[in-house]
Each structure stands twice: as structure tokens, then as C-alpha cells.
Amino acid sequence: MPVVLIVAEQQPDGNLRKATLNALTAGKQLAERTGAELHVAVLAKDASGLAAELKGHGAKVVHAASSPVFEHYLAETFAPAVAELAQSLGATFVGGASTAMGKDLLPRVAARLKAAMATDVLGFEGSGADVVYARPMWAGNVVAHVKLTTPVQVFTVRPTEFPAAPTGGAEAEVRPFTPKTEPVKTRFIDFKEVKSARPQLTEASVVVAGGRGTKGDFKEIEALADVLGAAVGASRAVCDAGWVPNDLQVGQTGKVVAPKLYIAAGISGAIQHLAGMKGSKTIVAINKDPEAPIFQVADYGLVADLFKVLPELRQALQSK
């Protein structure tokens, strides 16, 4: 039976990265369409805990590799192991979530498998075993329908486009595996967590973003974000001005986000910025300029001074 193999991801804190469950849903869709079994691979210093957690989420088999080699993620140690497993299973699809790890690892796996790859898949088109990947190009200004013509196909999925795989159904069989290991040319030195009480910009379900209209004063943006449990974002103009760190930049050359709710305050809506947030489910724009292009993509527009209405909005939402 053909196999769809999803690669699970462990966070630095040891827990399963939630995006793995979204990738499992994508894997399940592919498995059902192609008459394949859904398998998941987990590699860690001690993979037993994660394997136990994964076995209730719809996969038929959980392949668990435990080794000190896998204590810290490196593409050079993980890619050969995943490729070896995929080959031994005869997997025809190998995928994972479009996280920093997924994007680093899976192209290297694809290279080992001489496979073509689709990044950031939004959904599957075509029918049955004829799989066509819908994926964004030009920061989501275009959705391309793509076929991969190699015997093995590799992909990453955008986690926000697939629901998390629920628990329930038959429990998976957990199979330990011991991949061959070779000396590698890269060494892990350290990981510095960026500690923030706020969620990650690319994973947050709500984003509050500020633009030039804030004049660099992000206090109200941050206060509203904290009431909503939201991440803070910014336009490129604001980052370029040095008002906020670059890693908050939402846009084509910054982060591409697709939260449930995106609140843009004092952002005019340059093409660069729109490309990074147009995929949001609901967009709120607050801007003094009624002609600002941001209103063209906003579901709800409020022509007003952000310094006046953001506190009002915060209080209204706080007391809900």
C-alpha cells in the first residue's frame, strides 16, 4: 500500500509543534484521495513521548527515531533519516508544516529523493491520485495550481489552511526506527528563545498591526494586542524608520500572515504590505485617510484617528 509520510516537529521546549497536527490533516486528505496509508515520523533525543501523543491523531503508523543525534534539529541529520524512512516505506508523498524547520528540512529531503516539491500548500486540487497543489506565488497575489511530476512528491502546507487533526479513531502502531547516521558538517551551537508573552506573528489567530500613522508610538497597538491575545505587526515604513524591530514586518519581504482577525491601524496599505496580510479572514482598517488603499481590502473600515479609537476599542473588547 502506498504511504503518505508526514514529518512531525518538536519545539525547543520538547512539546509537539501544533502545526504538525495541521500537516496531518493535509496528509490524511492525500491518503484518502490516493488510497494510501498515513504515516508520521518523529525524530528526537527521546521520541517516545511525542510518539505517544501522535498516535491518537489518525495516522496508521508512527515511526519514532530516538537518538542523541536528534537532540537538536539539523537538516543534515534529519534529512537523510527521513529520506531513508520514506524510501524503505515506498512513500509517494512526503510532507510537513511550513514552519522554519519544515522549510529548512523538506527541500533537503526532496533533493535526496530526487523529488520535486511544493511549498506552502493551501489545498489540493485535481482528483484521486492526480494531485494538483494550490500554492501561493508573489506573496499570495497569485494562486498557482502545480503538478509535481517526480515519482515521489514533497510538500509543506500552510498550517492555517488545514484544521488540526482531531484525536479519536484507531490508535496508531508505534514503530521505532534506527536510521543510519553519518558524520555531518554542521554543528548546533545554541538556541536563544525570543521570549514574548505574545504569540508568534505567523501563528497568531489575531494580529494588531501599526503603520506610519502611529508615528512610532506602539503603546496603544500593544495594549489592544494584549487584550485580544494577539501578535503585534508593523508595516515596512515603520520598520525602516527603526520604530519597531524588523521581525514585526508584515509584507511581501517580511512575514506573510493569515490570521482570523487582522487589525491595521494607521497603515495606508502599500502593495508590499497587502501582499503579506490579504489572506486574513477578517480585516479591520483604522485610518484617518478615507482614500487609503487599505480600505479596499478591509471588511470593516473606520475612518478615524487611531489614538482616539484604539483605546475605545480596547475598553469595549475588555468589557465584553
Partner: peptide, 24 residues
């Protein structure tokens, strides 16, 4: 090419939004 683009489509259109008069 082994990655073959069959066609390109625009992203799902956003339905026309509205302006709201106030925070409430």
C-alpha cells in the same frame, strides 16, 4: 521542469467591505 504550473488563478476575492461609523 518537474514542477509544472498548470494554471494561475487570482486569490479568493474579498467581499466588498463596509465603513463603520464608530467603535461601537
Amino acid at each position: 521542469p518537474k514542477v509544472v504550473i498548470q494554471k494561475m488563478v487570482p486569490p479568493p476575492a474579498r467581499k466588498a467591505g463596509i465603513k463603520v461609523p464608530d467603535v461601537a
